[in-house]
Amino acid sequence: MPKASVQHPPYAAPMLAAFIDGMPEQPSAALDPYLDAAARCFARYGHSRTSVQDVANEMGYNRATVYKRVGTVEAMTQLLFAREVHRYLDTMGDRDWGVPGPDTVVEILAVTVEYIRAQPVVAKVLADEMDSTAGVLAKNLGWLRDHFLAGMTTPMTVGMELGLLAKRDPTAVIEWIFRMLISLIVLPPVGDIRETLRELFIPALTPGGGA
Rank of each mutant, 00 (worst) to 15 (best):
L126T: 06
T196S: 10
A127S: 13
L181F: 07
L197T: 06
G142T: 07
D103W: 08
R44H: 13
L187E: 15
T91Y: 03
V106T: 03
G135L: 11
R117G: 11
A172R: 15
G163V: 04
D131N: 11
A18Y: 03
A18W: 07
K3W: 02
L16Q: 11
V52E: 07
G209K: 11
D192L: 04
S51P: 08
P189H: 08
R83P: 04
D36N: 14
P120W: 10
G210N: 03
G22A: 02
P24Q: 01
P9H: 10
L164K: 11
L149R: 09
A18L: 01
G135K: 10
D169N: 15
D103S: 09
S5T: 11
V136N: 04
A12T: 08
V136P: 00
D94W: 06
A30R: 15
L165S: 05
A127P: 00
A17L: 11
M152P: 00
R198H: 13
L165V: 03
V105L: 15
P203C: 04
R87K: 12
Y115H: 15
A204W: 03
T65F: 06
A43S: 15
F19S: 00
L165E: 06
E161R: 12
Q26T: 14
Q7W: 00
S48F: 06
L80A: 15
A172N: 11
M160P: 03
D169V: 01
M15V: 05
A110D: 09
K124I: 01
A4Y: 08
V158H: 00
G135C: 06
V106R: 04
D96Y: 07
G93W: 05
A12C: 03
I174F: 03
P9G: 03
Q78W: 12
L149F: 02
T65I: 06
S183R: 14
I108V: 15
G191Y: 09
G163Y: 06
G135E: 13
L181P: 00
I193L: 09
P10D: 08
A29F: 07
A4W: 10
D90N: 09
G22D: 02
P9D: 04
S5L: 13
M23Q: 15
A211R: 10
E114G: 07
M180Y: 01
G209E: 10
D21T: 13
E175F: 00
L109W: 00
V190T: 14
M156A: 12
A18K: 04
I202A: 02
P10Y: 07
R49M: 04
T196Q: 08
H47T: 13
L137D: 10
K167F: 01
M23D: 03
Y45S: 09
